[in-house]
Amino acid sequence: MRVSTATHRANDDILRLVRKGCVVFTVGVYILLVPFSCLIFAALYLIWRPTPLARLRRTQALVSLGYRTMHRWLNLVRLTRWDMSRPLEKVPEGAFVVIANHPTLMDVTAIMGLLGGACTVSKPGLHKRFVLRPILRGSGVIAGAGGDPSAAARVLDEAVALIEQGFPMLIFPEGTRSPRGELLPFGRAAFEMACRARVPVLSLAITCEPAWLSKEQPLFDPPHQTPHLQLVTLAIDDPARVDYDSRQLCRLIEGRYQQWFRGLQPEISAVEPEMHNR
């Protein structure tokens, strides 16, 4: 019995080391590819001379392809398990606002990959970086308000303009990654955008068990079990049902997420002991 436990532990350590090696290799390849990707982006930007709108669509399609390729790779090296062939249900035609809980950094790339591209709002600090700024702007990423009330008006205007041009807008209403076992209060920005642009809100429920790339589980510390990423459609809401009142819409959708999250807790608790045993 003792021998078996020791062997088991040794196997676990080897597996953990292999997994960490895979992460280091993946990040290394990513770092090597970044300059080339930027050059490809710049070249395509110069070659593509249609309208700015068509250019934005093509750039987003390219970004989406990049994310899908990355997820295929992560599946291949068993760093994650995600059934990419399962399409999202009830995705509306035309523009919409898509919201989701945010348990991992992988959910952004997974949603963008599945939707074939979307605009979003990022931390304003990212837009101050010289290299990143043109790439972010070129792919429809708006600089967030960062708590500045006057900037919130600009963010809303820019977001509504993009939605009205037919782009899906991805927003995480918690404003940051969800802490483990918690759902933070929802901000109203996503719902205000949907109400102003008069487009539906697609609610996605995301789980990643065991947790990885969450606030608590960093990149270079992958869990022992392969993290299973799942994306499902929770609901689709037309803001007309609340007479385009973003406050009411926020309350309605946040309540639904809370209900879903409460139902999820036993599943998370079941995975928890495994994580603590690492």
């Binding site: 308000a145 708590g147 500045d148 009330p149 006057s150 919130a152 901000g187 109203r188 920005a189």
Partner: peptide
């Protein structure tokens, strides 16, 4: 409160007290 509340508050402060919140301050 959230960012949209802040925006509504900024508009209300402007209309009631005549004080404008400058962007990017």
């Amino acid at each position: 409160l959230d960012s949209i509340d802040a925006l509504e508050l900024a508009l209300a402060i402007h209309s009631k007290f005549g004080v404008r919140t400058k962007e990017n301050d």
